[in-house]
Design a protein around this nucleic acid. Structure first.
Lengths: 249, 249
DNA sequence: CGACCCCTTGAGGCTTCTCAAAATCCGTGG
DNA sequence: CCACGGATTTTGAGAAGCCTCAAGGGGTCG
């Protein structure tokens, strides 16, 4: 089971638990920021008791599609996948999440996807209903969450284009460029792209089989567009050609 | 061009323009509802001047991917598609929107998708920046928008599963059931499913060609699972079998 | 009545999947 | 340090599903 323990109440709970959500947000007026800050102060002790941290081992499942949505989570470190499955076992990964990302927020009472750790992952959890209550009282948090939701929608639309219209090679090229950009956005080195997931997970994300994923990697290596120093490391040798391949006819 | 005219200022602007967004929402506390109502009263005259209504003819484009995002829109009647395109012309429709749906809200300054009318469509538009300002001051509106965004994310995840893992027949069956459910949710008859879009648009939505879409319809008709009284009307004869076909191996 | 658009049907080809086996990686233990 | 076993990745051959190209129907509107 996941390790779970309560945070020390004295800590700056908001900042520690939801770092990304409390970044400055451009829709926050001075007034709503004040409301946010004051709520943080007055409810901090109560929140501290509700917030817990936990860790997951690789392949450990955080929750399944259809489970009762009791908690919302914020990832402190590590990486996990968001997926939907069909009754015969076919699986589609809808996205990969990393440090700072948020999951489990639903208007519905059950999760619409399942979440599984790719590598060792640490996260904070918060009872969903209490979080919704906090949300209703904290406009700046809601602004932030709305901005996150909007960017998730844009990312989902990009994946829909990828899955609906791109060839296997275009999907792989797009995926490598996306992973590289995401690492850069997190302040990490963007060139030797690290893939914390297996070929099976890449395939389930891109709507391909592991064999097709592997064949595309091999082909890109033979074209000298990428290098494969290790199965989970991809060196981008010719970014321009990779970009061209990501939308070539 | 689209017909555009300003609403009479005396009208109940909020209710007329954003009917769906101002439905009762369960995250609204009494306090935030009060704020919302009071803002509506004091800013109503100003808003009336900013809100305009417009209509689109079939195939008319509302905005393109990459256009400067000047307005947000709410559909009064009709139907339109949200799509992304590739440089060689391949197109992927990310969703169909109908009466009550909302589009154009972005944190980015440009639209991430293009929007095109399927049939004659009437909508209200509102300057995006003014809407964002209103949003920052109106928690209940934001609650509502967040709920909408969450359900859009769930719908996108469902489409990602469809595009990544389902066969052509499963996609068509899923699509028919989805359209039926959406019509029912809008209080319309759910059985003779109306398809306000062409085969090309169904194909671009499901990641298939028009020929494959047509062949699947024909096959379902020969199996006596559906009837096709007209190209744009689908009678579901055996809902259970259709459901089985939507996730058959 | 004819032109146009959309839908349907057919034949063949290509990309990707399936099934199978070999190669590589990695942790464990001698 | 090296050998072993299991998991993962890579490679190969053949099959299947969907796409491409092409032609034929059906409806609508001028």
């Amino acid at each position: 089971m996941a390790e779970i323990h309560t945070l020390p109440r004295s800590a700056g709970v908001h900042a520690a638990v939801f770092p990304k959500l409390l970044d400055p947000c451009d829709t926050c007026t001075a007034r709503s920021l004040t409301i946010c800050a004051s709520l943080a102060a007055e409810d901090q002790a109560k929140m501290g008791a509700l917030v817990t941290t936990m860790s997951l081992q690789p392949r450990q499942i955080l929750f399944n599609e259809g489970d009762n949505a009791e908690y919302v989570y914020n990832i402190t470190s590590g990486s996990l996948s968001i997926a939907k499955s069909m009754s015969d076992g076919r699986r589609q990964i809808a996205g990969f999440l990393g440090a700072g990302d948020f999951l489990g927020f639903n208007t519905k009472s059950t999760y619409t996807v399942s979440a599984e750790a790719l590598i060792e992952t640490h996260l904070c959890r918060f009872p969903r209903l209490a979080f919704r209550k906090l949300l209703a009282e904290t406009p700046c948090l809601e602004h932030r969450l709305l901005a996150v939701a909007e960017s998730e929608i844009a990312a989902a639309q990009e994946q829909i284009l990828l899955l609906g219209r791109k060839t296997a090679m275009e999907r792989i090229a797009s995926f490598l460029l996306l992973q590289s950009a995401r690492m850069k956005a997190r302040g990490m080195a963007d060139n030797p792209v690290l893939l914390p997931m297996t070929r099976a997970e890449v395939g389930d994300y891109l709507g391909l089989t592991i064999e097709t994923v592997s064949r595309c990697f091999t082909k890109l290596r033979k074209l000298d567009v990428i290098g494969l120093p290790a199965p989970d490391r991809v060196l981008i040798k010719q970014a321009e050609r990779l970009k061209a391949l990501s939308e070539a006819a």
